[in-house]
Design a protein around this nucleic acid. Structure first.
Lengths: 193, 193, 193, 193
DNA sequence: GATGAATGAGAATTCATTCAT
DNA sequence: GATGAATGAATTCTCATTCAT
C-alpha cells in the first residue's frame, strides 16, 4: 500500500468515527485503532488533528461539489439545471450519508469553521451561476439572487435531512413534488396571486 | 440571589462559551470561571455536563418556539400564518444569535442529539398544523404535508444563516421577496406553469 | 497539611529529582510520584512545568542570597566583608548541595534562563556594593568594578565545585589560603610586582 | 561529500540547535532537518543521541583545549604562561561562543556528565602543570596547587561569561587589569599585607 | 549510503467528577 | 450553599529508535 492509499484509508476510518462521535469526541487514538496503525504513525500522515479534520472535510466536500454538478450543464433551461442539481444533491447525500454528515459537523463547528457559508463557497457560486442565468433570460423572479440562491440551498439541505431519517419517502413522486415547489419558488409567473 | 437566578446566570455564561468554543471544547471549569463560581458549585446546580447542556438547549429551544408562534394564530389565512411565522423566526434569530447557535450546535451533535429532526418536534408540529390547515381549506398545493413542512423549515433556517453573516440584508424589501417565494412554494395556483 | 506546606513538599521532591535527572528529563509524573500525589493534583499547585521550575529556582536562589549575606554587614573592612561572604557561600553550598545544583541547572539552561548573569542580579548587586565600598575607601585595586565583581564570583563558584567533589578539602587552612588569594586579587598594594 | 565531511556537517548543525534549545529539548528530527538529511540517515552516522552528544562535546572540548594551549609553552615564566593561557581562553570563547556553550551545557547536565570537573581533566592537568612549575621555581604562592588551579579556572570562566553578555568590555585595558589580578592571586609577594 | 514508514513508550496537560469541610 | 483539594482516565502530540527497501 502506498502513501496515498494509506492516507485514504485513514480518512475513511476518520469519516466513520467522526459521524458516530462527532469531531471533538473522536480521539486520534480511536482513529489510529480503527485504521489499524499506531498513534505515532497517524501523525506521520497528518500533522495534527486539526489538519486531519481539514483534509477529511475537504475530501467530503469535493466529492459533494463534483457529484452535484454532474450533468447539470447539459440541461437547457436554468430551471431544469436547478432541478437536475437538486436530484444530484439528494442522490449523492442518500448514497453518501457519512460524507454528508462530515460536512454538517464541520460546518456547525465554531472551532473548525468560523464562517459556515464562507466554507461552502463553491456550492454557493455554482448555484448562483444558474440563478443569474435564470434571471437574465427571464425565467426567474426578480428577487435578489442571494435570496434565490440561499432559498434553494436551504430547501435542498432540509429535504435531505428529512429523507435521511425516512429514506422510504424518496421516490419519483417526491421528486416531482419537489420540482413543483422549486418552480413555484423561482418561476417569474408564480406566487403573485 | 436565589437558586433560579443563579441557575440562569450559569446558563447565560454557558451559552456564550458554547457559542465560542462549541459544546465539547468548553470545559466545566471554563463555565464556572465565567459564572464566577467554583467548579464544585457548578455541580450543585447541574448534575453533569450532559445535564447542563440539556438544560441550556431546552432553555434556548423553548424561547425560540414561543417567539416563533407569537401572534401567528391571529392571522387569518394559512399563508399569512406562515409568513408571520417566518418573520418571527428571522426576528428572533437576529436578536438572539447566541441562543440560535446553541440550537444549531445541539442539533448537529451526534452525541447529544441523535435525531436532528426529532429534537425539533414542536417546531415541526407547529408548522405542520398550519400546512394541514392550508391544504384543507384549499390554499396550498397538494404536495405531501411533510414536504411542505420541511421545505418551509429549510427555507427559513438557511435565510437566517445568510442574514447572520450579512445582517444588513434584512429589511422590508427582503421580507417581501421572501413572502413572494413562500407563496410560490405553497400556493395552489403557483408553479404549475 | 495546608496549601503552602503541600506546595513546599512538592518543591522539595522536585529539587531532588531535578538534581538527579536534570530539568528536562524529570517528568511531571516523576515529581507527582515522588510527592505522593497525582499528576492532576500537581497541576492544581503549579500551572505548568515551566512555572514549577521557576518557583523551584526562586526558592533555591532566595535561600542562597539570604545565606550569603548573613553577617556580612557586621564586618568592618570591605575585604573582611568579601571574605565573610566567601565563607558563607561555601558553607551554604556545602550544606545545601541540591539547592546549589538547582541554581546551576537553571542558569545553564538556554530554555529557562536566557541571560545567565541577569538571573543572578541580586548576587551581583550585593557583591558589587562591597566592591564599590572597597574602591571608595582605597582598600581595593583601581580595576573596573565589574571585573572585580566577576572575578570574585567566578572564584567562589569554582572553589565550591571543587569542594563538592572532594569535601574533605574544606577546612580552616583552605579558607585561609582562599582569603590570601582574595586579598591578592583585590588589595591595592598587591600584584604590582 | 565523504563520510567525515557529512559527519562534521551534522555536528555543526547539532551545535547550533543544542545552543538554542539545550541538549534534551533538541530532537534527532530537529537535527536531521537542520542537516538536510533524514532521521534514519542520522543514525547511520551516529549510533544514538547519546553518542552524538558525546561526539559533539568531544569536538568542542578538543578545539578548546588546543586553542588554550597555543603558544603557552613559548612563554618564559609560569606567570606569563598563565596570562597567555588566559588570553587564549577568552579569545577562543569569544570567537566560538557556540562551541563554548556546548561545553557548558554538557558540563551542567547531571545525565551526560556526572562529574563536572572530571570531564575537564585535560584542562585541569594543563593548568596544574604550570601552577606546579610556578610553585617549584618560587614564583607562586605556597597555597595548595588544586586551589590555585581551581581559582584560575573559575576566574577565567566567569570573566568569559561576563564578556559574552557585554562583548564591548573586552579590550587591552581589560586584559591588563585581568593580568594584574592574576598576579595578585598567584605571586608569592602579593596579598600578604 | 539513504530514506519512508512504523512504533512503543512516554511527554505535558486537561477534564468531568467527587467529597470532606 | 459553597469550595479547595484531589484524581483516574483520557487527550494531543513527541521522541529515539528500527528496519525493509
Amino acid at each position: 500500500m502506498n502513501h496515498t492509499e494509506r492516507k485514504n484509508e485513514i480518512i475513511e476510518a476518520s469519516i466513520t468515527l467522526f459521524c458516530e462521535r462527532g469531531l471533538d469526541l473522536t480521539s486520534m487514538q480511536d482513529i489510529a485503532n480503527a485504521a489499524g496503525i499506531s498513534k505515532a504513525t497517524l501523525y506521520f500522515y497528518f500533522d495534527s488533528k486539526a489538519a486531519l479534520i481539514q483534509e477529511v472535510h475537504q475530501h467530503c466536500y469535493q466529492m459533494d461539489v463534483d457529484a452535484c454538478n454532474f450533468g447539470v450543464e447539459q440541461e437547457k433551461t436554468a430551471m431544469d439545471k436547478l432541478c437536475r442539481r437538486f436530484r444530484n444533491i439528494i442522490s449523492y447525500s442518500m448514497s453518501h450519508p457519512r460524507e454528508s454528515m462530515i460536512e454538517q459537523l464541520y460546518t456547525a463547528s465554531p472551532v473548525y469553521c468560523g464562517m459556515p457559508l464562507q466554507c461552502k463557497k463553491e456550492f454557493y457560486a455554482d448555484i448562483e451561476k444558474i440563478v443569474l442565468e435564470g434571471k437574465e433570460n427571464g425565467e426567474f423572479k426578480e428577487s435578489p439572487s442571494w435570496l434565490l440562491t440561499t432559498a434553494y440551498y436551504g430547501f435542498a439541505c432540509q429535504i435531505y435531512l428529512k429523507l435521511k431519517e425516512e429514506p422510504s419517502l424518496w421516490n419519483e413522486d417526491t421528486f416531482n413534488a419537489c420540482t413543483k415547489m422549486l418552480r413555484g419558488m423561482f418561476s417569474k409567473c408564480a406566487g403573485v396571486s
